[in-house]
Structure formats: structure tokens, C-alpha cells
Design a protein around this nucleic acid. Structure first.
Lengths: 215, 215
DNA sequence: ATACAGGCTGGAATTGTATCCAGTCATTGT
DNA sequence: ACAATGACTGGATACAATTCCAGCCTGTAT
């Protein structure tokens, strides 16, 4: 719909962009004229009209510095990686893999490497078994997928098709999953008798995302 | 010289920021007056002078819409409201506004409206006074700048130039700031005797960002 | 040749805006 | 009690800025 800008129009447009980046507001006709050597502000006005016709700027009539740059490519700041974000996992059905699509509630627009080690997904925690570790019902636990866990770290584990978040403690073949809440008993597992699947390591917590607020 | 902004000054400042984000240029005195209900553009002018004195904006004399935001690495593009992310505030020096540039540690690439009400900045919490509310030393508290607080909500308050996070309780002119930790005594303030500045409302918590990990 | 758009000068009307002055009212610090 | 400050109203003034009008060139399609 719009023909390409002429060389002169491009110069005017560039000056507008540069001015807005430098000062935080658009130039006046007189400022454009001064910068480009016009002796009349009307020359700038006509260029602005042309740029408006071609859709690269929008003029707001009767308004000083009333120039807007509509949906344009933002070139002042280094572009954000803008990955799709971390998937938020709601309830996990028995026996199905955690990252199955049907568990994905929504996405959290945070880069995976915001946490370290990097997060692979966010798990919505149910219950208060980790409240003394500051993980409450409804909180999102950032999880790094790994089987390498050291004692005392917080893990996402699967026990009999049940996904839980607990503190991990291992001595030989005996693993203890400790709740951070006096009301919950530790769970003791003998790896030679029972299977324990480690889904990942807790690397962060987010609370309050999307209306859940702070209680 | 840089005392914190008054509530009204904050309102004016917020309007300037909002206008620049929405339109790509700062408001005029008349526009500020219209938006905030002043009958005289002079009321806006005086607020701008106060904001300039306190360093949060800079005025360019004789220039229409001559308002700059020197603090944030603000960009002119209205393209995406959530481009740069939320500023992370480290320690706040006595008597200076929270969002002063020198307090900004880094940015968290999360859109403000991920939380609701939307977050304006993230405050790094020091100490364990809110541990029973799941807010630990080093956690980031997402803060929505407002003075409208209901009983039981978690607030960021300034008492004698000291910034603290507590649960808010008000009965008449007596405000109680309650720590969520049995080791800390509640702080009782009589608003008629002592000044209490409410900096904002806690709307979220983030833990584990960048190497701090989970303990 | 003629028409038409781009790119200007020069001037001028009109409105937008910044900025000053003189007050009022309430709060706070001395 | 007094001065200082914040938060305004109301009016006024001068400059800043948009916008219109009448032209003058120079190409380039018709």
C-alpha cells in the first residue's frame, strides 16, 4: 500500500527516530528544518505528511511534537532473546510424563537461564508440605531436569506415580524425602525394594503470578 | 537533597511515565492538569519543578513537552510496554526514592503485568522477618506502587528513612506492621505522632534468580 | 506540451504551551 | 506564633509550534 520512502524522506525519518531515542520526545517542524537545513518549517511539514501517508509515522493534529512511530521495529535496544518462556505444569496425572502437553497450563515469559542451573519448567506446587522452605500452596517451583542431586537439595520426585516436592537425603541405598513442615512425616525409601524417580532439582520459586496474589 | 516523592508527586510522575509509554512523547502541563483534575496548568508546573528538584525528571526550559526521564534507560518506542523488564532494587539508602537509578541492581526480564496488580519493581528483601510468609533473605519481592492498602496485605513501608517489608494492619490512626516471624515484635505506629510512608504493595515473590539457588 | 509529485522558500494566522505573578488553604517544623 | 512547604485556583503573557497559503524549481511519466 505504501511506496518506498525517497532518500530525503528517509533522512527525515531517521532524524525523527534519532531525536526520539536521544531526547525521549519527537522533534518539531522547526527542529527538523534546522537539522536538515530547510529555511522553512513547511518543508518539514510536507515531509511529515508524506511519511504519514506512507504509514511509517502517524501525525496527531494540533499537538506539539505530535509524531508517533506505530508498530515499528525497535532498534535502540539489543533485542531480547524472547523465547516462548517456561512452561507451567499444573496437576500431573498418574503415570504420565511431566512435560506432556496436556499438563501445560500456560507459559511464564522468563528465560530458562534466569535461574542457575537453568530451569526447564515451572511446577505448580500443591499443599503446604514445604512451607518452612518458603514454598506455599500454588507457588511455582522452577525445576531443572537432572538426576544428579546432592543431599539437602530440594527435588521433584515421583513415588508410585505420585509427583512430590521434598528435600532429598541419601545414605547408601536409603533415601529420605523430608517435608519442610512439622505436620508431615519424612518418607523413607529403600532403593533396593522401591523405585524412586527423580524428575529434577528445584532451582527457584515464583509466587503471585497471575492474580493468585500474596496471602 | 533527594527526599522521597510525596504521594501527589508520585501520581504526577506515574502519569508522565504512562503517557510516554503510551504515546511516545511526554505530556504538556495542560494535559497533566486535565488528567489529574487540576484547574490550572500551574499546579502541574509546580509538580514538575518539584520532580526536577528531586532528580526524577529533567525539564528542558522553553521547550514544549520538554520532560526527560534521566533515571531509567528509557526508550521512546511505544511498541511493547514490557520490553526492558522489571528493575531489581538492591539496598535503598536512607532518604532517597526507591526507584533512583543508583539502587537498580539489574533487570528481571519479566513483564510487569505478569503479576496482578502489576509489579513496578522487584525489591531484594534482607533479613528473615517475613519467613513465615515464605519471604526469605535474598528473595525478590514484586512491588506494586500504591498507597491503597487493605488490612492483612504485605506492604513495603518507609519508617524513619528505613525501608521494611511487613504485614499491614490499621485500626483508626494506629497502624501495626507485623513481622511474620516469632522472633520479631510488631511495630506499632500512631499516624498522628509518626509519619509512615507506604511505598507499595507486595504482589509476588521470586526466589533463586541467578545463582542464589534454593537453600 | 502538459500534468503531476517531490522538494523546497517565505510569510503569516492561529493555536498550543511554558512560565510568571498574585493569592488561598492546610500541614509541618521551629 | 511564625516561617516554610505542598498543593492548589485564576489570570495573564510571550514564545513555541502547527498549519495554511502562494509561489518556484526539477524531474518524470502521459
Amino acid at each position: 500500500m505504501a511506496r518506498p520512502l525517497t532518500a530525503r524522506q528517509q533522512t527525515v525519518y531517521d532524524f525523527i527516530v534519532k531525536t526520539m531515542a536521544e531526547f525521549g520526545y519527537p522533534p518539531t517542524r522547526a527542529e527538523i528544518a534546522r537539522a536538515l537545513g530547510f529555511r522553512s518549517p513547511n518543508a518539514a511539514e510536507e515531509h511529515l505528511r508524506a511519511l504519514d501517508r506512507k504509514g511509517v509515522i502517524r501525525m496527531i493534529p494540533g499537538t506539539s511534537r505530535g509524531i508517533r512511530l506505530p508498530a515499528s521495529g525497535n532498534e535502540s535496544e539489543p533485542a531480547e532473546p524472547q523465547s516462548s518462556g517456561l512452561p507451567i505444569i499444573g496437576s500431573v496425572a498418574a503415570g504420565s510424563p511431566i512435560l506432556a502437553t496436556e499438563h501445560i497450563d500456560r507459559y511464564c515469559p522468563l528465560p530458562a537461564d534466569y535461574f542457575s542451573p537453568s530451569a526447564d519448567y515451572l511446577l505448580r506446587v500443591r499443599g503446604l508440605s514445604m512451607k518452612d522452605a518458603g514454598i506455599f500452596d500454588g507457588d511455582l517451583l522452577a525445576v531443572h531436569r537432572t538426576q544428579q542431586i546432592r543431599n539437602g537439595q530440594i527435588v521433584v520426585a515421583r513415588l508410585d506415580d505420585d509427583v512430590t516436592v521434598k528435600r532429598f537425603q541419601r545414605e547408601g541405598s536409603r533415601v529420605t524425602l523430608i517435608a519442610e513442615n512439622a505436620d508431615f512425616e519424612p518418607i523413607v525409601i529403600d532403593l533396593e525394594l522401591q523405585h524412586l524417580e527423580i524428575e529434577g532439582l528445584g532451582v527457584g520459586v515464583i509466587r503471585g503470578g497471575n492474580g493468585s496474589g500474596l496471602h
